[in-house]
Amino acid sequence: MIVGASAAASLFFLPTHPVFSQPIDPPADNIQSGSGWRETWAGVDATRDQWLAYSGITFAPWSRDIYSDGLRLRLGGGYGQYGYDGLAPRSPCGDATENDACTEADREQRRYRVQHAYAEMLIGYYLRLGALTAKAFAGASMSSEQHLVKDPAVDRDGTKYGFKGAIELWLDMNSRTWTSLDISYATARDETSGRWRAGWRVAPHVSVGPELRYDKNIETGDDNWNGRSGLFVRYDWTGGEVSVAGGVSGRVYDWDATDVSPYGTLNVLFQF
């Protein structure tokens, strides 16, 4: 019987659709006419044990521009890899029924890497209510994972399809401060994600502030989740923006963080 260590205790799993890839709306008084009815974005995200590259596009085909109320169509996708340490058998072991199963002495530490890809097609609605901007999306998603070296303890490779829902909120608290909250859930791998930001406009086109992130999926288990805490800088101009963020990422169990490492994110967006 082949025996391996459980990978779920040491992974930073990639979400199927990172909330940090979503564009952030500017305050109402900064909106420029002629913004276009399409916006496209791309970015990269990395920690010590994973990396992800992603891109997407949103259409507002029946609205005056991307900042007017109305239906939205969104396409997105990405590819990345993550790694973890697990135990693997040194050689084939015997039959557990004959009391000859693998023991700790029969196993060795091994580094595993997994490639991950996702895609989604969503339809939603954009609504501006004074200082509050709300977007809601729903549709189909795909998540695929494949070990580059097979782990005998993990049998989750393959492509899964499911439903994806997302809500994105932006609130201008005054002329210099704003806050945003993005949450999503995908059934393909039972993934829940959330990100909160609070921004201070230190200049007309520059915002800085803290961000918090929460990720949980089927691999993390019932009592575990992945968390992030960091700072971001966002620069916007007519027709685009760039956002950079960094901080610490870790796995949280009973509010104790383990496997802590730095993370970094870069995201760019253009409207046309």
Rank of each mutant, 00 (worst) to 15 (best):
C102Q: 04
A28Q: 11
F20Q: 02
V248A: 15
S249I: 09
N30D: 13
I2P: 01
H147R: 12
L122I: 08
D215N: 11
G247W: 12
L87P: 01
K150F: 10
R213A: 14
G78Q: 11
G130Q: 07
R156I: 11
M1H: 06
E120F: 15
T192A: 11
R74S: 05
R197S: 15
A28F: 10
V242P: 10
E191L: 08
V202L: 10
D65A: 02
G77L: 10
Y84I: 05
D182T: 12
R201T: 05
P152Y: 13
R74G: 01
R107A: 10
S35K: 06
D65K: 02
Y82L: 12
G240F: 10
W37M: 06
Q50M: 03
H116Y: 12
T265I: 15
L266M: 14
V149I: 04
Q22I: 12
Q146H: 10
A140L: 06
S63H: 09
G194R: 02
G130C: 12
Y54M: 14
D215M: 06
G86F: 00
I66D: 00
V3C: 02
N30W: 14
A5I: 00
I123P: 13
I66C: 01
V3K: 02
Y84D: 06
L266D: 08
L269A: 15
A203H: 03
R195P: 01
R64I: 09
R74F: 03
G83Q: 14
Y214M: 08
V114A: 00
N217K: 03
S184C: 02
C93N: 02
D157I: 00
P210S: 12
D151S: 03
R90H: 11
L169N: 05
A166F: 00
T47R: 11
A8D: 09
V149F: 02
F272W: 15
E219A: 09
D172Y: 03
A166Y: 00
Y79N: 04
K160G: 08
D190K: 07
A203W: 08
G209E: 03
A8I: 12
E241P: 00
S63K: 07
R48E: 15
A138M: 09
G162K: 00
T238C: 02
N267G: 03
I57D: 14
Y126P: 07
R251S: 04
G246H: 06
D256S: 12
G36H: 08
G221Y: 02
N267E: 03
A60I: 09
W237Q: 03
R234C: 04
N99Y: 13
D223R: 15
G230Y: 14
E211G: 07
F59L: 15
A105E: 11
L87A: 05
V154G: 00
L171T: 03
S207V: 02
R113W: 05
C93H: 01
G4I: 07
D172S: 14
A188Q: 13
W170F: 07
T220S: 07
W196N: 01
F163N: 03
E219N: 08
S33I: 09
Y235R: 00
Y253V: 14
D25R: 06
R251M: 04
K164I: 08
L231Y: 14
S243C: 11
G124V: 09
D223M: 14
S193G: 15
I123S: 15
